[in-house]
Structures are given as structure tokens and as C-alpha cells.
């Protein structure tokens, strides 16, 4: 039985939200827990997606590889590559002022995008990589999207419980101490740079995992698919709307904002003629930008605020 109509859309919607959920859990570790501003989420997402594509596709003349590796191996290598990129950036910037990380990451996102566009031997350039396969392809009877949804949900659950465990562990406490006051954390004998670097690399590796899940989902990727809007800005809005620092909030934010985003598409398509479709994109961007400002002004703690075991002193 081929899924169609509403159930098919629901499966698509949930899978997409799940991939965003993984991405935002990674961002929540960096921003929510540690207070690091990563404006280059797209970079780690892209590296993950491309690594996955190159590692798992069948051998071809168009780009490096493909190496035809199994799905799970591809995911692991995707995480390692994104983590390695984060390690390099973190090593340079994490010792310095917090805003240098933001500047460096927004720069690296642009450079990675140009790199993927221009290095044809590696990525097939603007033509992108095709025929990225999902596991259990050919399971038949339209079960494929459903199986993939289950895989994505499993990944979300795994990352969620691992991060919740980490949050309660001494490691998580140090990260929050860093976020609140670096000097106090340093005075307690914690190596600031080590903890910062671990958190940044782990968060970015999780973003790489999200990228690795994204590539087979669409089976085609190209540099144009990873705009700053989709891969950096929306995740930020989702996290801030849901509740920075709270993993439940991060997931709720992914659902709510993706719902809002999809609704604006539907609404605007009702109003604006098809000939002005690029303008509709700008209008949605404007709306989501305004939404972020409204949240920052009126509910900066998000839908589900971070919970503290003890009251925060003011």
C-alpha cells in the first residue's frame, strides 16, 4: 500500500522535524548549555550531508567515491568529519572573546559552501550528488518512508537521552558554570578551553549526524539546498522559540517552528500568484525574522524554559 495524501505528508513532516530535532539538540548543547554562538550550523550540517553522500553512494565518475559503505558507518564518518572541522575552528577561537566564534563560524559556513560548489572532483559541484540510498531500499509496499521515519526517531531518541544524561552529569554542570561565569569556573580549577572545545566538537558532530540523516532522506543534495536560512537561521529560531538550554524545549521548538514555517508557505501561496514565488520566499523570511525578534523581546526564555534545581540568584 503506497502512502498518499495526508498520511504521506505526515510521515514526510515528522521525518523532517526529526532531522531538525537532531540538529537543534546539537545547537542546544553549544548555545543552550555552554553559551557558544555558532552561526555556522549550515557548515557542519553540509559537511555531514556530503560526507554521508560520498561514503554511501555507489562508485561513480562524478565525484569522489562513492565508497558504497553501509548506512551506519556513513553516519559515524559524517559525525567525525563535522567534529574535526569544529575542532579546528574551536582551537583557534574558543580561547578568545565569545563573539569571535560567531564571526568565525559564519565565515566557515560561507567557505564550506563555496568549496562544495567549486571542487567538482569531490562533490560534483553545483550539479550535486544523486542516488543517495536509504537503508532497506526496496522494502516494498511503500514502507520505505515509514522505516526511515523510525530510523530518524531512533536517532533523535538516542541523542536526546545521551544529552540528558550528559546534562545531569558533572560535565553538564561545568558547561553551565562556564556559561554563567567563566571566571568562577576557572577559579574552581576547571580547564575552560578543554570543556568549551569538547562541548563545541560534540555539538557539531551531532549537527553532522543530522546532515548524515538528511542526505538519504532527499536522496539528492547540492550546495544550493543548504542556505543560511534553512540550515542556520531556522534552527536558531527553533531553539530560541522552544527554550534554550532545555532539550524538551529544543524538540518542541522544532515541531512548532516547522509547523509555522509550513503554514506560512501554504498561506502565502494562497495569496501570492505563482509568478512571484521568489518574492514569497522573501516574505516568509521577513515573517520568521520578525518572529525571532518578538520572541527575544517578549519571551526570551522560550516555550519551555530551562529548569534549575535551585533558584537562580539575581
Amino acid at each position: 500500500m503506497e502512502l498518499s495524501g495526508f498520511p504521506a505528508y505526515a510521515v514526510f513532516f515528522l521525518t523532517f522535524v526529526g532531522i531538525y530535532g537532531v540538529l537543534i539538540l546539537g545547537l542546544n548543547l553549544q548555545w543552550g548549555q555552554t553559551g557558544q554562538v555558532n552561526f555556522g550550523v549550515a557548515a557542519f550540517f553540509m559537511v555531514g550531508a556530503y560526507t554521508m553522500a560520498i561514503m554511501t553512494t555507489a562508485p561513480t565518475e562524478d565525484h569522489l567515491g562513492g565508497f558504497g559503505l553501509p548506512f551506519v558507518v556513513g553516519l559515524i564518518i559524517a559525525m567525525v568529519m563535522s567534529g574535526a572541522l569544529a575542532f579546528l575552528i574551536g582551537l583557534i577561537t574558543l580561547r578568545l572573546r565569545a563573539d569571535y566564534l560567531a564571526i568565525a563560524t559564519i565565515g566557515i559556513a560561507e567557505i564550506v559552501r563555496q568549496f562544495l560548489k567549486n571542487e567538482d572532483w569531490l562533490t560534483n559541484g553545483v550539479r550535486g550528488i544523486t542516488a543517495i540510498t536509504k537503508p532497506f531500499e526496496g522494502a516494498g509496499a511503500g514502507a520505505e518512508p515509514l522505516i526511515y521515519l523510525c530510523i530518524v526517531i531512533a536517532a533523535v531518541a538516542l541523542v536526546f537521552f545521551a544529552l540528558e544524561r550528559l546534562r545531569r552529569a558533572p560535565f553538564g554542570r561545568v558547561l553551565r558554570a562556564l556559561r554563567e561565569n567563566e571566571d568562577t569556573a576557572r577559579a574552581s580549577g576547571k580547564s575552560i578551553v578543554n570543556f568549551q572545545l569538547q562541548s563545541f566538537v560534540l555539538g557539531s558532530a551531532i549537527m553532522g549526524l543530522a546532515g548524515g540523516l538528511y542526505a538519504p532522506f532527499f536522496s539528492f543534495i547540492s550546495p544550493e539546498a543548504f542556505t543560511n536560512l534553512f540550515a542556520t537561521f531556522l534552527p536558531w529560531v527553533m531553539l530560541i522559540a522552544g527554550g534554550s538550554g532545555n532539550n524538551y524545549g529544543a524538540l518542541l521548538g522544532a515541531v512548532v517552528i516547522w509547523l509555522v514555517w509550513s503554514l506560512t508557505e501554504w498561506l502565502i501561496n494562497q495569496v501570492i500568484p505563482a509568478s512571484m514565488v521568489t518574492q514569497a520566499g522573501a516574505l516568509r523570511l521577513l515573517l520568521i525574522g520578525v518572529l525571532l525578534q518578538v520572541i527575544l523581546l517578549f519571551r526570551p526564555q522560550g516555550l519551555i524554559p530551562e529548569r534549575f534545581r535551585f533558584k537562580r540568584p539575581h
Binding site: 554562538v37 560567531a102 521577513l286 520568521i288 525574522g289 527575544l296
Partner: peptide, 30 residues
């Protein structure tokens, strides 16, 4: 937003950048 931490201003300015860009594109086309 100035009363909150400087990082919030950073994030807000990132959003402002997109609002301005979207506004320009709406007014003058892509």
C-alpha cells in the same frame, strides 16, 4: 535588548540582517 546579555543582541542582529535582506528583496526583486 540592551539590558540582557550582549549575546542576545548578537542573535537579534543576525535576525535583523535577514529582515533587512528580505525587505530589500521584496522591494526590489531578487
Amino acid at each position: 535588548l540592551r539590558q540582557s546579555t550582549p549575546v542576545i543582541l548578537l542573535i537579534s542582529s543576525f535576525g535583523v540582517a535577514l529582515i533587512v535582506r528580505a525587505g530589500v528583496q521584496l522591494a526590489f526583486g531578487p
